[in-house]
Design a protein around this nucleic acid. Structure first.
Length: 271
DNA sequence: CTCCAGGGGCGTA
DNA sequence: TACGCCCATGGA
């Protein structure tokens, strides 16, 4: 089916560091893996997006996954008109959305992400899924769902190392053991307050402030979460010597964070 | 408080 | 081909 939005650029979303399972086939075409589904996405032109699914499946799964009920025009219009940097970042990143991804997948993915580049994270997650995830029949690729906790704990240390997890293996195994034995249920954390959710995430071995922030934003859709990695820290230091106006953007600071991250990182790469 | 492991991708020579 | 650089967290 076809959807229309000026805030939907799957390539920018794929490069924005929030999702590691979008595989670009060309500049405007890709497939992505979510749960036990694979979806083909093609950008026919700037504002027309073709999704390879039925209207029913779109309504049941993808509309929510792509967060189509959030009005990005309204949010970006709230940016301070005198903040040239932020307005440039928003214009440059137009099309980025915050996806609603699976909390369990986000916890493990961002534990793996620490001290890794985006391509390296993608490689590790692909290997892990291939090793123990459920195979998904689809017309695009040999695809495997992101593994469950019990699938992960079935792996030997050697198998985990073969995914390039390095010292993160112990973090991943610890979280999977807690989840598999029922000590924690990350899906039930959806109902918690931001503060309690952050506390629970930080209690996991290998999860610090930055990883917790990413999981809150991308796995629990807490739009106030503002994960600060090195790029964001550099951007805020360079562009907001008096501090970023968090209070002015209460309720969607995480969206501003995505625009700033994408813009600043790409500007730095250019030179 | 400071220091540093650890491993894969990437830019540079 | 080879080398240095990047990098989030826990633990010494």
């Amino acid at each position: 089916m076809i959807i229309c939005s000026e805030h939907f650029d799957i390539k920018k979303i794929a490069e924005s560091g929030q999702c590691f399972r979008i595989n670009m086939l060309s500049d405007d075409s890709c497939y992505l893996i979510h749960g036990d589904k694979v979806l083909g996405v093609t950008m026919n032109n700037k504002e027309e997006i073709e999704l390879d699914c039925s209207e029913d499946e779109y309504g049941e799964i993808w509309s929510d996954y792509f967060d189509m009920n959030t009005d990005y025009n309204k949010i970006v219009s709230l940016a301070d008109k005198e903040d040239i940097f932020l307005n440039n970042a928003i214009e440059y990143g137009r099309g980025i959305r915050i996806l609603k991804q699976d909390p369990w997948e986000m916890i493990i993915s961002f534990i793996i992400s620490q001290r890794k580049s985006i391509p390296a994270i993608r490689t590790s997650i692909e290997r892990l899924s291939r090793l123990c995830g459920q195979k998904i029949e689809n017309p695009y690729c040999e695809c495997y769902a992101f593994p469950t906790a019990s699938q992960i704990i079935s792996l030997s240390d050697e198998e985990m190392s073969s995914c390039g997890l390095g010292y993160r293996s112990a973090y991943v195994r610890n979280a999977a053991e807690k989840m598999a034995c029922g000590e924690i249920d990350v899906y039930s954390w959806n109902s918690l307050s931001d503060e309690k959710l952050r506390e629970n995430l930080l209690s996991l071995y290998g999860v610090g402030e930055k990883v917790a922030g990413c999981v809150m934003l991308f796995g629990y859709h807490r739009l106030d979460a503002f994960p600060e990695d090195v790029w964001i820290k550099r951007a805020l230091q360079a562009e907001y010597p008096n501090g970023f106006p968090f209070d002015a953007y209460k309720g969607y600071g995480g969206i501003m964070q995505q625009y700033i991250f994408f813009y600043y990182r790409n500007m730095s790469k250019q030179k």
